[in-house]
């Protein structure tokens, strides 16, 4: 077990380096001179050349990469030219909102997928078959509908046509005041400080984007739960358990235990998918998180900001994959025994 963790962590170092390298390459793709971009088009050629020298842009690329790495280690991701702030600060300020949106959606998705998937897996009657058809059609639709389109349909239906929802702009209505910033996540901060009016307003704002993400992203996990449970239920040891007259509760427990590893893997991978899924959802609901920041960076050619988002998103994904591997090792006795990886 500890050996496995050690090997997995040792693998992390070259992977981190590679991620940094890819992110470094992205900037090399940018059109035109970075010095020119900083100075503006009116600057003289001499000034541009001088800045290029100063920034080391004429150095061979390994030297530039090492300098980039050095910057990263000091937490220097460059400066956003649209906000004028260090990119790391920009992202740090927006990250809690994004993580909150993703995590709340993820929690709802997992609970829904487990409940519906288990119910579907165990229902062997007519109801189960109807459920199968419904979940098949739902999966097809959820996989085919673009998330941003669906989010807009929700806005149209629940804000314009039936005005149940609040105006889908921002995280809360500022008429109720601004919450104290502790973690940066409005949900947690308002709960901690007991700021009920803002909390209620925040929940009102949270519900549509969460619903949009949940509708699109529950389907694959639901199907995975259903098929894993179905597979476990038809296996020999469950038949034996049934034949031995074990209570249904125990059988559910057995089936779930062996169905768990693939579900954990997919759930983990899907958490990283939500990072990307949140980008457009945030934009539509003006959520003010990292996703919206990234879109603005694309639209205003703010490469340093964009590079920062890409790098940190990849890092987060890599850490989630690491967590999956470790959780896997913990719940799957075979992996635990062999010391192997996925």
């Amino acid at each position: 077990m500890s050996r496995l963790i050690g090997r997995r962590l040792a693998l992390l170092v070259p992977q981190l380096l590679l991620i940094c390298f890819v992110s470094f390459l992205l900037i090399q793709l940018t059109p035109g001179s970075q010095a020119r971009a900083q100075l503006g088009s009116s600057a003289s050629d001499e000034a541009v050349a001088a800045l290029e020298d100063e920034l080391g842009l004429n150095d061979p690329w390994p030297a530039q990469f090492v300098r980039y790495l050095g910057g990263l280690l000091r937490g220097d991701l460059g400066t956003s030219w649209t906000t004028g702030q260090p990119v790391l600060d920009d992202i740090a300020r927006r990250a809690p909102a994004t993580l909150e949106l993703i995590t709340v959606s993820f929690a709802v998705i997992i609970v829904l997928a487990l409940l519906l998937g288990l119910a579907g897996g165990f229902a062997r009657n007519l109801l189960g078959r109807i459920g199968d058809k419904i979940s098949y059609v739902y999966s097809l639709m959820a996989g085919a509908v673009p998330d941003f389109w669906f989010a807009m349909i929700m806005v149209f239906v629940f804000y314009y046509t039936f005005p149940i929802a609040v105006a889908p702009v921002g995280q809360y209505d500022e008429a109720f005041g601004t919450p104290a910033v502790i973690t940066g996540s409005v949900l947690i901060d308002t709960i901690v400080t007991g700021d009920v009016p803002v909390l209620v307003s925040h929940l009102d704002h949270l519900i549509l984007p969460v619903l949009a993400l949940v509708f699109i992203n529950t389907a694959p996990i639901l199907r995975m739960v259903r098929s894993s449970v179905g597979e476990a239920l038809t296996s020999g040891y469950i038949t034996l358990a049934r034949a031995n007259g074990l209570p249904q509760r125990r059988i559910v427990g057995y089936a779930l235990r062996s169905a768990l590893p693939p579900i954990v893997t997919l759930a983990g991978v899907w958490y990283t998918m939500l990072i990307a899924g949140a980008v457009l959802t945030e934009t539509i609901f003006s959520w003010g998180g990292v996703g919206q920041y990234a879109v603005q960076a694309v639209q205003s050619a703010d490469w340093a900001a964009l590079q920062g988002v890409v790098l940190l998103a990849a890092l987060l994904s890599l850490l989630v994959y690491l967590a999956i591997d470790l959780v896997h090792a913990w719940i799957d006795p075979r992996v635990r025994a062999s010391g192997g990886t996925r």
Partner: peptide, 24 residues
């Protein structure tokens, strides 16, 4: 396969958006 792991760690949509933002 470990290199592929890393490439896949870049969120699909963000990477595509970023690349296209840069190269047009």
């Amino acid at each position: 396969s470990r290199t592929l792991d890393v490439v896949q760690a870049f969120p699909f949509f963000i990477l595509a958006m970023c690349l296209l933002g840069i190269v047009g």
